[in-house]
Write a protein that binds this DNA or RNA. Structure first.
Lengths: 238, 238
DNA sequence: ACGCCAACTTGACCTAGGTCAATGAGCGGA
DNA sequence: TCCGCTCATTGACCTAGGTCAAGTTGGCGT
C-alpha cells in the first residue's frame, strides 16, 4: 500500500500548504486517502463560503487568500471573530452546523474535504483527530485572548494588539516589519468591537505617536516594536 | 478483561457526573483504566486551581461546585472567560501550558487526571479524543458567542444573555425558572466586560422592566421569558 | 483627462457606561 | 446583640468612544 503510494503522483504532496495545514498530520504515503476526498475550489473576493447555521458538510483548508469569519445579530450588528490566512483551517461544527459564517476578503483557493470522508480518515488515522484537537485548543485560546481584548482593552490597546498579531501571522511568528492589511477598516472595526471612525483615528494616533508608519491605508510598518508592544499591553498611553 | 471489570468495584461507575462528564466517552468496563489515573480533590471557596501559564500537568472534571476561568492584564484588569459547573471539564492546554487561570467560586470537588495518564487512555480508546474534540468545538463556539456579546451588545443585552445562559445551564437546556448566581457582581462584571456598578444598575433596570425578579442578590427568577429573550437579542429596549 | 465611487480621514458633538463617593443590607464572630 | 466585615445598590458627574456630517484620496472606466 505504502509502496504503491510512493510511486504514484499524489497532488497533495506538492501542495503549497502541505506542511502547515491539517494534512501535516499524515505521512506522505497516507495522503492518498486524503487526496481522494478533497478538491480545490476558488472563490472571488467578497463571496460567502458558508452561512452561520448552514449544515456543516465540508471542512476547508485555505491554500491561498484571506477569509473572515463572523457572527451577527438580527439588526445587522456584526462581530468578526477571526481573520484566516493561507494554511488555516475552518469548518469545525457544533451539532452539525457551522457556528459562524465565513466570507472571502480576497480571491481565495480552498482545499475542501467532505465531513463524511474526513470521518473515515479519522477512523483510519487517529493522528488526524489528535491534530484537530490541538488545532481546536489553539483556536480556543485565541478566542479567549479575543475575549480579553474586547472586554478589557482600550481602543489603542486593541489596535496595537491587532497589528502585532497580523504582523506575527504574516511573518510566521516574527513580531516586526511590515504587514499587509487585506481587510477594510470596517472589517477591522467589526473585529475589534469599535467603529470605523475610531479605528481610523486610532491609526492616526499610533502614527503620530511614532509606533507605526502607514505608507498606504492597507500597509502598516512597525516603527517602534517596543512602543507598540507597550501600547498592546496597556503599559503606556498616547 | 471486560468480565473481570464487570465484577470489581470501579468508583467511577458510581460517580455523580458519570454520564455528563468526559468519562461518558468510555463504556463501564473501560472505566478501570480511567479510574487508575484519576483522583478526587476538594478545594475551599476562592482558591486557585491553577494559574495562567502553569505547566498543564492535569485535566479536571468538576464533580460539584463552581469555578471561574480568567485572563488578566499586567495592571490587574481581569476578564473572566467562563463559569464552570458540575460536569464541566477544564484543563485543555496550548504548548503545554494552561492558557487561562482557574479559581473556585464555592467549595469544589474535582476529578483530576494526569495529562500523561490521559495520553495513554487516548491511545487505547480513540473515542476519548473524539469526545475531547467535540467538547473543544463546543467551547470554541461558546467563546465566539462571548466575543459577539462583548464586541457588539449593550449592557442590557449582555446581562439578559447571561441570565438566560446561566438558567439554561442549571436546568439542562430549559430556558426558564429560577437560577442561583454563585458568583459576585464583580465576577459578573468581569465576565460581561462591564463594571460592578453597571451590572447592579442593569439588574435594577431588568427588574423594573418586569423581565426578572431578584428576591435575593444571588437568586434570579425569570418573570417574563419573552421579554428577557427580546432584551438578549436586542429586539427591545428598556 | 475626467468623473465616479468606494474607502478612508477628520471634525463637532453626544451618550452609554465608567468613576467616585455615599449608603444600605446581611452575616459571622466576640 | 452589637460590631465590623464584605457585598450590593444608588446618585452625581465624567470620558472614551459613538454618531453625524463633511472632506479627501485613489483607482477605474470611458
Amino acid at each position: 500500500m505504502a509502496d504503491i503510494a510512493a510511486h504514484i503522483d499524489i497532488p497533495c504532496q506538492r501542495c503549497k500548504v502541505r506542511n502547515r495545514a491539517i494534512c501535516a498530520a499524515l505521512e506522505d504515503d497516507q495522503l492518498v486517502d486524503l487526496n481522494a476526498i478533497s478538491e480545490h475550489i476558488t472563490l472571488e473576493r467578497e463571496r460567502t463560503v458558508f452561512f452561520e447555521s448552514d449544515p456543516a458538510d465540508y471542512l476547508f483548508n485555505i491554500i491561498d487568500g484571506h477569509v473572515r469569519i463572523h457572527k451577527s445579530l438580527a439588526d445587522g450588528r456584526r462581530q468578526i471573530t477571526g481573520f484566516l490566512y493561507s494554511g488555516d483551517f475552518l469548518g469545525l461544527s457544533v451539532a452539525g452546523m457551522y457556528p459562524y459564517g465565513a466570507e472571502t476578503i480576497t480571491p481565495t483557493t480552498f482545499c475542501r474535504f467532505s465531513r463524511k470522508g474526513l470521518t473515515k480518515i479519522i477512523e483510519k488515522y487517529p493522528a488526524f483527530e489528535h491534530n484537530l484537537l490541538q488545532l481546536a485548543s489553539h483556536e480556543l485560546a485565541a478566542a479567549q485572548e479575543h475575549v480579553l481584548l474586547l472586554g478589557r482593552k482600550t481602543a489603542v490597546e486593541r489596535l496595537s494588539s491587532f497589528i502585532l498579531n497580523v504582523t506575527a501571522k504574516q511573518h510566521g511568528g516574527l513580531d516586526n516589519g511590515t504587514a499587509i492589511l487585506p481587510m477594510t477598516r470596517q472589517d477591522i472595526a467589526d473585529y475589534l468591537g469599535l467603529t470605523i471612525e475610531t479605528v481610523s483615528r486610532t491609526f492616526t494616533r499610533l502614527k503620530k505617536g511614532g509606533a507605526i508608519r502607514l505608507p498606504e491605508p492597507d500597509l502598516v510598518e512597525i516603527a517602534s516594536l517596543d512602543q507598540l508592544e507597550d501600547f498592546a499591553l496597556g503599559e503606556s498611553t498616547i
